[in-house]
């Protein structure tokens, strides 16, 4: 499915929740069901520094696509990670470089993107784009 379609799918999922509590309960549910990283992958190399919660992002470049795994020590952030991975994992570097991740705003979680010290989500998106640029260069060299 196209990235845009997945974003629309997420927006629809969230549209049924009118209440903040329900929205966050769903995020918590997503966070709790996200598969944990292999403990050895939770290292400094994969750590994305947000101020309050720690986020790890592990990329794997396979057949021209980047597959991501991630985790956070805070469940709400883990829920956000789960949503983000649904959209960005398994995409080509070019797709990611040109992506517009508007769903976060659309589902009313934009506060998690503000450049405050509260979490590493913004830093994570930046890191995803950096990986995309780097893998793009690698694949162009190989070609």
């Amino acid at each position: 499915m196209e990235m845009e379609n997945i974003q629309q799918e997420i927006i629809e999922e969230f549209s049924v929740y009118e209440d903040w509590m329900d929205k966050y309960s769903y995020l918590i549910e997503l966070g709790n069901s996200l598969q944990n990283l292999d403990p050895k992958d939770k290292n400094d190399q994969h750590l994305i520094k947000g101020c309050q919660s720690r986020v790890w992002l592990v990329p794997e470049f396979r057949d021209g696509k980047i597959y991501f795994q991630g985790e956070s020590d805070a469940v709400i952030v883990k829920g956000l990670v789960a949503l983000l991975l649904r959209v960005v994992s398994g995409r080509t570097p070019k797709e990611l470089m040109n992506s517009d991740l508007h769903f976060i705003d659309a589902i009313g979680l934009k506060q998690h993107l503000s450049p405050t010290r509260s979490n590493g989500l913004l830093a994570m998106i930046k890191q995803i784009r950096l990986y995309a640029v780097a893998y793009n260069r690698i694949s162009e060299k190989e070609a």
């Binding site: 903040w20 805070a74 469940v75």
Partner: peptide, 12 residues
């Protein structure tokens, strides 16, 4: 429970 999670929900 992570303090960030508690604080985020209390805010709501």
């Amino acid at each position: 429970i992570h303090s960030f999670d508690l604080g985020t929900m209390l805010d709501k």
